[in-house]
């Protein structure tokens, strides 16, 4: 047993050195026959552990489609996707769903907290989904996570009782509570004022630094993109540029 654990830890260390995410030749087409439209034209992308990447580009360039494919919410028409060292091609819907729950955290533009749940319960959801049931320790973990994002007093507040900025902080904490290796954020500050946008970005950046969580942010906001490690520019379904942020600026 000890030997097996040692092998597992070894494998984890080796895994750490590998990219969290590897896309090769990702093509996405919608429709069939003559009405077929190609939205992504062979995307190659790698994200290392602890990287904070911004994906930018004009509307309709395929950013959201790319994010959906990375998030395992949509299958690619062609190409391969490896997440946390595993090729997802062979996974069926159930396996993919389980894998997504374990490896990816999501932050959406409009917070998308579940309205019938309190802030703490929203935070608990990824843990409940992973274990299949509510357990006693989850509330404590949710409390600690809320304190971390400065919302310790909002444990029992419903989403409707919180401001947009507060809701998005809860959403960020929810994406990270299960310690996934990758967090995907779709316009996380798109619905916030400048001050709250800064706060949300700072929060994600601190998690990224402290926990080494890789974060991919799709954003239109150049101030957010400029503060990332890398900026990937997608135009017409192709990666037009992929370089450290300072090069873009």
């Amino acid at each position: 047993m000890a030997e097996q654990a040692s092998v597992t830890r070894e494998a984890e260390r080796e895994g750490d050195a590998r990219p969290v995410l590897e896309l090769q030749g990702i093509v996405k087409e919608f429709g069939t026959g003559a009405g077929r439209t190609r939205v992504l034209h062979g995307i190659d992308l790698q994200v290392a552990p602890g990287e904070l990447i911004a994906i930018i580009g004009p509307s309709g360039s395929g950013k959201s489609t790319l994010l959906n494919i990375i998030g395992l919410l949509m299958p690619a028409t062609e190409g391969s996707l490896r997440l946390a060292g595993q090729d997802v091609a062979a996974m069926d819907d159930a396996a993919l769903t389980r894998f997504r729950g374990e490896k990816i955290g999501f932050v959406f533009q409009f917070h998308h907290l579940i309205s019938g749940l309190s802030a703490a319960e929203n935070l608990m959801m990824p843990l409940i989904i992973r274990r299949g049931r509510v357990t006693d320790d989850m509330r404590d973990r949710a409390r600690a996570a809320l304190v971390e994002v400065g919302l310790g007093s909002k444990m029992d507040a419903r989403p409707g009782q919180m401001s947009g900025g507060e809701q998005q902080r809860v959403a960020v904490a929810r994406a990270l509570i299960g310690n996934p290796p990758l967090v995907l954020a779709d316009e996380p500050t798109g619905n916030l004022d400048t001050e709250n946008s800064e706060k949300i970005f700072d929060l994600m950046r601190s998690y990224n630094k402290e926990r080494g969580t890789a974060i991919v942010i799709v954003t239109h906001d150049p101030r957010i993109a400029d503060r990332c490690d890398r900026i990937v520019r997608v135009v017409d379904g192709r990666i037009e540029a992929d370089a450290p942020a300072e090069v873009h600026t």
Binding site: T97, R100, G101, I114, I129
Partner: peptide, 16 residues
């Protein structure tokens, strides 16, 4: 619908 989508994104199975 949107909340169901989020639950699915977070790893809830169709059966769930």
């Amino acid at each position: 619908s949107r909340e169901i989508g989020i639950l699915r994104a977070m790893g809830t199975s169709r059966g769930g």
